[in-house]
Amino acid sequence: MITLANVLSCTIVFAVPLLLVALGGMFSERSGVINIALEGIMVIGALAACFSLKAFDASGFGATNPQLAVFFAVLIAGACGVIYSLFLAFAAINLKADQTIGGTALNQFAPAFAVVITWAIQGQGQTQIQIPSWVRITSNTFGLGDLEQGFWSNLIFKYFYLTTPLAVVLLILAYVLMFRTKFGLRLRACGEHPQAADSVGINVYAMRYAGVMIGGFLGGVGGFAYTLAAGSTFASSVGGYGFLALAVMIFGNWNPWTILGGSFFFALFKVVASYSSIIPFLPTFEGVKSASNIYQMLPYIVTMILLIFTSKKSRAPKAEGIPYDKGTR
C-alpha cells in the first residue's frame, strides 16, 4: 500500500508541470500561435525561480517563510516565462515569421543561456543550481509533527509542493477564463477565424499577444514545478517535458479537462517506468535488461495510436500557425 501511495504521490507531482505547460500551450494555440517554444520557456522559468530560491535562501528569508518564498519564486518564474514568450509573439505576430522555426530557436537558446548564466553566477564549471530543502511542504508545515509512514500520509506528503494546489487553482481559472468570459470567446475566435474576429472589432494582434503571454506564464510556472518534482538540483534542462506537454495538449484536444486526464496518464506511465521493478503486479520481463525502457516508451506509442483514431475529429484551432495579415480580410 505504501508503494501505491508513493506511486500516486509521484504521479501527481509529475502531472502538475505537464498540466500547467499543456494549459499554456492551449492558450497560445487557441489564439492561433503554435507554441513549440514551451520547452525553452520552461527552462527560463525554472532558471529564474531556482536563482530566486537561492537568493531567498542566502538572505535567510526562505528558511523563515518557506512557502511565501516559493510563492514568490512561482511569480518570478511566471514573469520570466511571459518575457521570454514575448520573443515568440514578436516574431510570430508582428513579423509574421514561421512559428515553428521561431519556437525552435527559442528552444535552443534557453538551455544554452541557462548554462552560461549558471556558470557566470556560480563560477566556472558549476552547471547545477541547488534547490534549498525547505521548499517541500511537510506535515510540520501544518503543525502536525512527524507522521508515521502510511497510505494517506505518504500520498499527501511524500512529494508535496506549493505548485500542486496552485495548479488546481490555475486549472479552474484557465477553464473559467477560456470558456466563461468574453475574453476567452474572443481569444478562441482569433484562433478559429481571425478575419471574422477582426471584422467585428476584435484586435487580433492583441488577443494573440495575450494568448502567447498566458502560455508563457503557465510555461514558466510549469518549468519550476518540473524542477521541484525532478530532484534537488536544476541542471539547465527540463527533460523534454515541454515537448511532452505539447503531446498532452493534442491528446487532450485543446480542452482543459481532457488535458488534465492526459497529463495524469503520461505522468503515471513515466512514474511506473521508474518504479516498475518494485510494483508487484506488473510484468517484469524476465531476462530482459533495462526493461524500464519498455514502460518509458509506452506513453508515446499509446499517444500515436490514439492520434490515429482521434485525428479525424481533432479540434485543433483552424487558424493556428497562420500569421494574421489584415490584408487578407
Binding site: A105, F109, P111, V115
Partner: peptide, 16 residues
C-alpha cells in the same frame, strides 16, 4: 554553450 546561443540567435533571425 555560448556557441549554441549564437546559433540560436541566428535561427531566430532566420525565422524572419
Amino acid at each position: 554553450e555560448t556557441v549554441n546561443i549564437i546559433v540560436s540567435v541566428i535561427i531566430y533571425l532566420a525565422a524572419f
